[in-house]
Simulated scan of single mutants.
Amino acid sequence: MSKFFALIPAAGSGARMGNELPKQYLALNSRPMIYHAICTLCQNQFIAGVFVVLAPSDGEWHKYDWSEFSEKLVVLSCGGLTRADSVLNGLTAAKQKNLVDSNDWILVHDAARPCLTSIQLDKLINELSIDEVGGLLAVPVADTLKRCSNTENRVAHTESRENLWQAQTPQMFRYDLLTHALRSATSINVTDDAGAVEALGFHPKLVLGDAYNFKVTYPQDLALAELIIQKRNNP
């Protein structure tokens, strides 16, 4: 039977946070931010293992104690220049180490989405485990969207938000499909795994997520994530 594995690409620097420390290690509720994603994934009953893909030069990871996740957590120091490179390198390394099979499901999750819940994760797995393609957590766009026309930040026109969804992670695809998609997408600009799969002509399924599963990108996002996690820990 196919197994489920999670992969967290964590080789980036998070430059938009304006901090010298890589974003995944910024303190969040007295833990490095990446801890919260790892914890949710490792605690899931369906997930057999969690791969964290680090930059070869990463000097921060070993400053923390990860022993509580030792049964499931595997570190792969093969991160690339882009997110897609890190995911593909991690998948390749996992296969070379005989950790995954071609038909296994891979759930790629951002280290900077620390507010993922077990409910969202279970919903994604349950809805996609029998799907022919796979898919991703996402939420319908609620805000009005404006297209900018020039460097003066003038509105060119208002975009219709009908049928528009905001992509989240995890994004879940079979190992072979995801690997093939990422290898084929090297000549195009893809910002997520679903985009690479779409480029092959497939149509990933959108699974309704939660607005709390946002990506920490700017300093104010970190403060909001802190409040959310504190409230969950102290209901």
Score class of each variant (00 low, 15 high):
Ile125Phe: 08
Ser86Met: 01
Val108Tyr: 02
Thr117Glu: 06
Gly90Asn: 05
Ser102Asn: 14
Ser102Gly: 13
Leu121Met: 07
Asp101Lys: 11
Leu88Pro: 10
Val87Ile: 15
Val100Ser: 05
Thr117Phe: 02
Ala84His: 07
Ser102Cys: 12
Val108Gly: 06
Ala112Asp: 15
Leu124Phe: 00
Ile125Leu: 10
Gln96Phe: 02
Leu88Gly: 09
His109Gly: 04
Asn126Ile: 12
Leu121Ser: 04
Leu124Asp: 04
Gln120Trp: 02
Asn98Leu: 12
Gly90Phe: 01
Leu99His: 09
Leu107Ser: 09
Val87Cys: 11
Pro114Asp: 09
Asp85Phe: 00
Cys115Gly: 03
Ala112Trp: 00
Val100Asp: 07
Asp104Arg: 04
Ser129Lys: 14
Ile106Phe: 03
Gln96Lys: 14
Gln120Ala: 11
Ala112Asn: 15
Leu128Cys: 09
Thr92Asn: 14
Leu116Thr: 07
Asp101Asn: 15
Asp85Gln: 01
Asp101Arg: 13
Ala84Tyr: 01
Val87Leu: 04
Cys115Arg: 05
Arg113Trp: 00
Lys97Phe: 05
Leu91Gly: 09
Asp85Ser: 05
Val108Arg: 01
Ser86Tyr: 00
Leu88Ser: 10
Val108Asp: 09
Asp104Gly: 06
Asp101Thr: 11
Ala112Ser: 15
Ala112His: 13
Val87Ser: 07
Thr92Ala: 11
Val108Lys: 04
Asp110His: 10
His109Asp: 06
Thr92Trp: 03
His109Tyr: 02
Leu88Lys: 06
Ala93Phe: 01
Leu99Trp: 09
Leu116Asp: 03
Lys123Phe: 05
Gln96Trp: 04
Ala111Leu: 02
Leu99Asp: 08
Leu128His: 00
Lys123Pro: 10
Leu121Phe: 03
Ser118Val: 08
Cys115Pro: 08
Asn98Arg: 14
Val108Ala: 08
Asp101His: 14
Leu99Glu: 10
Ile106Pro: 09
Leu107Val: 05
Arg113Gln: 15
Arg113Ala: 12
Leu121Asp: 01
Ala94Lys: 01
Gln96Asp: 15
Ser129Glu: 14
His109Arg: 05
Glu127Tyr: 03
Val100Leu: 11
Ala84Gly: 06
Gly90Glu: 02
Arg113Thr: 15
Pro114Tyr: 05
Ser129Leu: 08
Ile125Ser: 09
Pro114Asn: 10
Ile125Ala: 07
Ala111Glu: 09
Ile106Met: 15
